[in-house]
């Protein structure tokens, strides 16, 4: 019974963390059709921003939820202005350029912080269920993920800003004709996407030992989740995040964590073979 509870909690956590990791990339890819391969490095920089802020004596929650997104968002803004905006509509070129950026950021962070592992301790103590101990921080991540998905949904669906953004993504020429500058809106969207990446990296920072190259661990998972999700931002995120999270945890508990990881990757290959347009390319079409 206790074990069942632990498995449920761990599975929910796995799904939530996948969604958290992928949210920033999903916004940028779903809305702008730009694949940001520097996404993992944005997360890594979010983590470093948090750690630096905490070491300077700032409250950890402020550091994670406010400072890191703003810092990474601003970096994203700079990247968009300097590189990405020249490459809109050239999918493969953006992938390559952002891959270059990811290498660049890894190098820069290595030069500043050194190639050593840094970390902060989790601010929430563990919780015991029967004989088992669960990291209490996992619940925090689950809550953050749920809030994040609700927030994205509300902003896109309920606000005028979201309406303008969605309109621009569908028909930028129409939006321009109605007096909204697509250039500005792309810029703002990329800022939001980067900020979300920073937030994700910051929230996950206490759980992992952070090294300059830790972005690589995230990018593949985020990339797979977003692409398998397909064109809809939120429906795709939830469906593929849910699927991969469950597959991963099932094999992790049944066999071993490594097999869990491999099972996730293999299931992604099979899923894409069966649904080449992603989950929401076939099901839940037209949903947000």
């Amino acid at each position: 019974m206790d074990l069942a509870a632990v498995i449920v909690v761990e599975t929910v956590y796995a799904v939530a963390s996948l969604i958290l990791i992928s949210a920033g990339l999903a916004i940028v890819f779903g809305m702008m059709k730009v694949i940001n391969l520097a996404h993992g490095e944005f997360m890594m920089m979010g983590g470093y921003a948090t750690i630096t802020a905490v070491n300077l004596g700032i409250n950890i929650y402020i550091a994670m939820l406010v400072i890191a997104p703003i810092v990474v968002g601003l970096i994203g803004l700079l990247v968009e202005r300097l590189v990405i905006r020249h490459l809109y509509g050239r999918l493969v070129d953006t992938m390559l350029a952002t891959w270059g950026l990811s290498l660049f950021f890894v190098g820069i962070v290595t030069m500043i912080f050194g190639n050593t592992t840094t970390g902060i301790s989790t601010p929430i103590p563990g919780i015991s269920i029967g004989d088992y101990q669960i990291n209490g921080y996992n619940f925090f991540i689950v809550i953050i993920s749920i809030l994040l998905v609700l927030l994205i949904y509300f902003v896109l669906k309920g606000t005028r800003l979201g309406l303008i953004a969605r309109g621009t993504m569908q028909r930028s020429d129409m939006a321009a004709a109605l007096g909204y500058s697509p250039d500005r809106i792309y810029m703002a969207t990329f800022f939001v996407g980067s900020a979300l990446s920073g937030l994700a990296g910051a929230v996950l920072a206490p759980l992992v030992g952070l090294v300059p190259s830790s972005g690589g661990a995230y990018i593949a998972k985020a990339f797979i989740t977003v692409i398998s999700g397909g064109p809809s931002v939120i429906a795709g995120l939830i469906s593929s995040g849910g699927f991969f999270g469950v597959v991963n945890q099932f094999f992790t508990f049944a066999i071993s964590p490594v097999v869990g990881e491999v099972a996730l990757l293999v299931s992604a290959v099979i899923l894409l073979r069966l649904l080449p347009q992603g989950v929401t390319g076939r099901f839940l079409k037209g949903k947000l």
Binding site: H86, A97, W99, G100, L103, F105, V106, G107, T110, M111
Partner: peptide, 20 residues
């Protein structure tokens, strides 16, 4: 002085932008 990855990264970005 400079990390290797920085230069590799800059080279890739510059080539994609200016000399694709």
């Amino acid at each position: 002085l400079i990390d290797n990855a920085v230069i590799t990264g800059i080279i890739l970005v510059l080539f994609v932008l200016f000399l694709p």
